[in-house]
Structure formats: C-alpha cells, structure tokens
C-alpha cells in the first residue's frame, strides 16, 4: 500500500489497521464515537467481533483497552488527541504508564489543523503530556506512508505507545521503501550548516524551508524525528555536532515537545544555538488550517527565519 498524493496521515493508520486485522488475530480496536474521523471504521466493518464501540467515554475506553491487553490482546484505542491525552490522562498514566499494558493509543486531530472547530479541539500539548509518562513510546509519523509503517511497527512492539496522526491532507514525503524503525530518526536531507529537527506534519514544511535555505547558501540536515520518545539521541547529537546550529519544528507547543526534547539532550551534551518553531504557549482559535498555521508561525517562512537566527548565533555561547 503506497500513497502518492497528499492525504491525511490518519489514512495510513486506517489502512494498516485493516492489514493487521488480517494478519494478527490478537489485534482489536476501540473508539469513543469517532470511528470515521480516527479511521477505524474499515477495521470495524471487516472485523466486527474485534471492534469495541465505547461511546463517548474516553476514560472507560482506556481502562477497557487495558483489560483487553491484560487478556492478551493488542488493543488500538482511538479518539481525538485532546481527549485521549488530556481528558483521559489519568487512565493513560495508570494503564499505559504504570501498569505498562500493551495498549496503542492512536489519536487523530493532533495539532492546530482541526481548524474551524477551534481551541477546545486543538491539541498543542498531547506530545508533551505523553512524553512525561515513564515507559511510554511516543510517535508522530510525517505522512500517510510513514503512518502505515508506524502502525505495523507499534503492533509488533510489545509495550504501550501513543501515536499522533493528522487529519488534513498533507504532502507525501516518504516512499514505500523509506526506512522506518521505531526510535530511529531518519535523515531526509543532508547538509552541514544547520540541523533541522522536525516531526509529523512539519516534516514536509521543513523540507520546503530547506530548499529555500539552500538557495541562500545554507545547507540543512533535515532529520525526521518520528519517534519523540525514546529520542534518538545519537541522531540529534551527530547532526548538531556536524552543523553547529539547530532549529526544531513541530505542530505543537514549544513547551514539552520536540523542541524541549532536543534541548534537554543538547544542553547537557552538545550546547549549540537552538531556535524552536512551534506554538508559543497559547490556545488556538477557529480558522482554516492554513490560516491558523500562518497566524501561529508554523510555516516554512518561520522556519527560514529561525534558521537564519540560529546560524547567526553560531560561535556565540549557544
């Protein structure tokens, strides 16, 4: 299964889940009245005995998924990012975290691109909330192809996972043969002037920015950090040491997500100037996704500006 034209990252998840239904009888799925938006509908239709509609009960859905995992199943629990990580934070902490049950929490509608639904539905903090839970693997694939591979990979991995998948159509930047290993960041473009770490929907945006920067003589090493936790520290250190300046880009708050994760490593092991592109500690609002992205500075232009700042700080104290 390969996607070639822009599509929602969630579609890669939905396709892979059906594939898992065929190949792994232990895989089950749950949703909280969001079968279509989270793309579990096709699994539900093909494997009705292994699908559990939990109604608008996100806390109960996580607990039920925990029980299914205790009974040897591999549950995929699905809802919107804000409800899965914030509303249901307590059972996620207890069951995916402390109990370390083999539950895969897969949430669509992460980030700002829920658009017109407004601030209550936009999750700028899901990656931060999940990253804080000990033992939880946190993944945010960058396109539908990567989401397909990531879904198969997290089913194979025996442990709890949070995976964020996007809603709106975004460009395809990886191919069927592109590598995907949980916990191993991928260098998408080589360069030694600036390390550009990016995640999820900001990966295509970062590649665009890298093109612009190349025209200005700044060669970026673009690193797709699809697994935020455990972080591929080696990839972060290697790219930073080679380039000497860093930009991070995420459709997420600059607090607690990729920018923080990268800075946490660098401040101890390889201090370098870091500029973070992300949402600056604020709520969102209604608007079309592209309008929101530009208002909150999640654009290739913003990445270019950040890159120029980071490069100009090279050689200063970091």
């Amino acid at each position: 299964m390969t996607f070639t034209s822009p599509t929602g990252i969630r579609n890669g998840f939905g396709q892979a889940l059906v594939e898992l239904g065929r190949t792994n009888p232990d895989v089950v799925a749950l949703t909280a009245d969001l079968a279509d938006p989270t793309r579990v509908r096709r699994f539900a239709e093909k494997f009705p005995d292994r699908f559990f509609q939990m109604g608008i009960s996100e806390n109960d859905m996580i607990g039920t998924a925990a029980g299914l995992a205790l009974g040897g199943k591999i549950p995929f629990a699905t809802t919107f990012a804000i409800f899965g990580t914030s509303l249901a934070n307590q059972p996620v902490r207890l069951h995916l975290g402390y109990n370390h049950f083999n539950v895969k929490l897969v949430c669509s509608h992460g980030g700002v691109t829920v658009g017109p639904d407004g601030a209550t539905h936009q999750a700028f903090e899901d990656l931060a909330l999940m990253r804080l839970i000990p033992g939880l693997t946190v993944v945010a694939p960058c396109d539908a192809n990567e989401a397909y591979k990531a879904t198969l990979a997290i089913a194979e991995y025996d442990g709890p996972v949070y995976m964020r998948v996007g809603r709106i159509d975004t460009p395809i930047v990886t191919a069927a043969e592109s590598p995907f290993t949980l916990g191993k960041a991928n260098v998408l473009r080589d360069g030694d002037d600036l390390a550009l770490f990016c995640v999820g929907s900001m990966v295509p945006t970062s590649l665009e920015a890298a093109d612009v920067l190349a025209d200005r003589g700044i060669n970026c090493r673009v690193v797709n950090v699809h697994t935020l936790k455990p972080l591929d520290e080696k990839a972060v250190l290697d790219a930073t040491r080679a380039c000497g300046a860093v930009v991070t880009a995420e459709e997420h708050s600059v607090l607690g997500g990729l920018g923080s994760a990268v800075a946490e490593v660098l401040c101890c092991l390889a201090p370098a100037p870091v500029e973070m592109v992300g949402v600056n500690d604020t709520f969102g609002e209604s608007g079309e996704p592209d309008e929101i992205l530009s208002k909150y500075g999640l654009t290739s232009e913003a990445i270019v500006d950040a890159a120029l700042r980071a490069v100009s700080r090279k050689g200063s104290a970091g």
Binding site: N59, G63, G67, G72
Partner: peptide
C-alpha cells in the same frame, strides 16, 4: 492492575471479560 486512583477498576475488569470472550 494497579489501583489507588478511585474509579478505574471496573473498566479493566470489563476489558478482561471481553478478552476472555474472544479467547
């Protein structure tokens, strides 16, 4: 299943019962 935060037990019990039915 660990407990302490009140309210969490029955959901897990239900999930295990569902898994038992499947298995």
């Amino acid at each position: 299943s660990s407990s302490g935060p009140l309210g969490q037990g029955l959901s897990v019990a239900n999930g295990l019962a569902l898994a038992n039915t499947l298995s």
